[in-house]
């Protein structure tokens, strides 16, 4: 029963363009338990986004060499599945929200079209059915007027609204795992709280495990169950959130904490 939603072991990412350079992510491993929110924190450039993209299989082989002991999704290893089977998992069993909500939606299609096309693709829903589900989905991420949002184009929405459309899109197939890469960094504090509230509420409702990438320990304290600290492509500490704040083990963690609280560790 207690098989994790996502198990990563010995994941390494190297650039093929600079063969001599050290790995950008080296031999990291972790379990993401079913339904939990696991935060991945670390300073800018430590490799958080590359970790996420490697798990999703989004790094082109021409530029990146990704090796993994295992990438297990609900117990099945998908590190060497053929591309077609991987595509069936992406957006369906595992999905991702990107750092930049301004450009993550296609400017030439309406938001409704983009969300419902995911449903039509993965669940084979008919047009009308997908439309109804999309509108329900938009409602669930907190839009009071889902019909209007359905018809809107991305440029007509604010950053927070777009990020909620992204959430609707990523969660529409009720994935087992969601990777949220700094979903709120580009938003102001109030909007950030609203978006994260919606996201975590939906995650609990669907039983989706969330890997929440952030550099904001305030966000971690408020939303995450456990937290991993990354430094230069290595996970240096994993802890329950309370313990991390009470007794940080690694100097890097203490430093991160000191930035947030303003206290000298």
């Amino acid at each position: 029963m207690n098989q994790p939603a996502l198990r990563i072991s010995k994941l390494t990412v190297k650039s093929t363009l600079e063969p001599g350079a050290p790995a950008i992510v080296s031999e990291i491993g972790f379990d993401l338990r079913k339904g939990e929110i696991l935060a991945l924190v670390g300073e800018s450039g430590c490799g958080k986004t590359k970790t996420a993209e490697a798990i999703m299989g989004l790094l082109p082989a021409s530029h990146w060499q990704v090796t993994a002991g295992a990438i297990e999704l609900n117990g099945t290893d998908c590190s060497d599945l053929p591309p077609a089977s991987l595509r069936k998992l992406r957006g369906n069993e595992i999905s991702m929200i990107f750092q930049e909500p301004l450009t993550a939606l296609d400017p030439v299609f309406s938001c409704g079209h983009q969300v419902s096309s995911v449903l039509r693709r993965h669940l084979g829903s008919a047009r009308n059915e997908a439309r109804d589900r999309t509108i329900k989905m938009l409602q669930q991420v907190g839009f009071a007027d889902p019909e209007r949002i359905f018809r809107s184009y991305p440029h007509q929405l604010s950053g927070g609204m777009r990020q909620r459309v992204m959430i609707a899109m990523a969660m529409s197939c009720r994935p087992a795992v969601l990777i949220a890469d700094e979903p709120t960094t580009a938003l102001d504090v109030t909007t950030q709280a609203q978006v994260l509230d919606q996201l975590t509420k939906l995650g609990r409702e669907y039983g989706t495990a969330i890997l929440l990438i952030t550099h904001d320990l305030g966000v971690v304290a408020q939303y995450a169950d456990r937290v991993m600290v990354m430094l230069d492509g290595v996970i240096v500490e994993t802890a329950e959130v309370e313990n991390l704040f009470k007794q940080p083990q690694h100097p890097c963690t203490r430093q991160l904490l000191s930035y947030t609280t303003g206290a000298v560790a």
């Binding site: 993209e53 999703m56 069936k88 992406r90 750092q99 993550a104 995911v118 693709r121 899109m169």
Partner: peptide, 14 residues
């Protein structure tokens, strides 16, 4: 290289 292309890939489009 725009993000919506990456996100289309993350949705599983060929």
């Amino acid at each position: 290289s725009r993000e919506f292309v990456l996100s289309a890939r993350a949705i599983g489009l060929p």
